[in-house]
């Protein structure tokens, strides 16, 4: 079964028509990568699915349950989380409070112990204001918040942007653990192709507001679509997949 189904999704910012009919199915319990050049509409697509775009048309469903017309907070409580690029944490709340917000907001939160068992690094920082942590640590707090929400679907926008290399690997590890051990479906927007290729089971390409193809990491680098759409060649992609 598909976790997230998107049909003929259109989205506008003011008068700019950015999403021009996106059709996409994100399979359950897997990590799906969304790739595209800058300005292709990747972030806009995630926002549209979350209901955080001024004008949206089309259909979005989570495990067959329609999300259309519902505000972002209702979508989040229905089981979909969104880690945006702009705001990772509530900077003036402590790490513990950041997690508590999620626990208080959703109907069936995951217990703190379970979250700390997977993301142990933040245990030492629970009382510190989240805004004082490094970029990578903030990203772990964001992951912990999403994990606390106990969502079935997690959308991530550039989780490794501005993060140190060893932290990139750690984030990849957590993403894999969430998907494969806890059954969370992930839609990942990631410029870091190394990470995308190592964690994603499927990739799809977004160009000018439409899905223009996709496949497994191996097939997209073999058939040249990766190079055609992104203008890059993935060295050793087959090995990574």
């Amino acid at each position: 079964m598909d976790a997230l189904t998107i049909e003929k999704l259109h989205g506008w910012y003011g008068k700019s028509h950015i999403l021009q009919g996106v059709d996409l199915a994100v399979p359950a319990g897997q990590v799906t990568g969304l790739l595209g050049r800058n300005g292709a509409g990747k972030t806009t697509l995630l926002k549209a699915v979350m209901g955080q775009l001024p004008r949206i048309e089309g259909k979005v469903a989570l495990y067959g349950q329609s999300l259309d017309g519902r505000p972002a907070d209702a979508r989040a409580r229905a089981g979909i989380a969104y880690m945006s690029q702009e705001h990772r944490v509530f900077p003036e709340l402590s790490v513990a409070e950041n997690i508590k917000v999620a626990a208080a907001a959703v109907p069936d939160p995951r217990p703190l112990d379970e979250v700390l068992a997977l993301i142990g690094e933040i245990r030492d920082h629970l009382r510190r204001p989240a805004g004082r942590l490094s970029g990578g640590q903030q990203q772990l707090v964001a992951l912990a918040r999403c994990m606390t929400m106990n969502v079935r679907m997690l959308m991530m926008d550039e989780p490794t942007e501005g993060v140190m290399p060893q932290m990139v690997d750690r984030i990849g590890e957590i993403i894999r653990a969430l998907a494969h051990e806890r059954g969370v479906s992930v839609l990942l927007v990631e410029q870091n192709l190394g990470l995308s290729f190592s964690v994603c089971t499927d990739l799809c390409f977004l160009e000018k507001g439409r899905i223009v193809g996709g496949g497994t990491p191996a097939t997209v680098s073999a058939d040249g679509s990766l190079e055609r759409i992104l203008g890059v060649r993935m060295r050793g992609a087959k090995n990574a997949a």
Partner: peptide
Amino acid sequence: KTEANDDG
């Protein structure tokens, strides 16, 4: 073109 503000 209308630019969106930070709340989207």
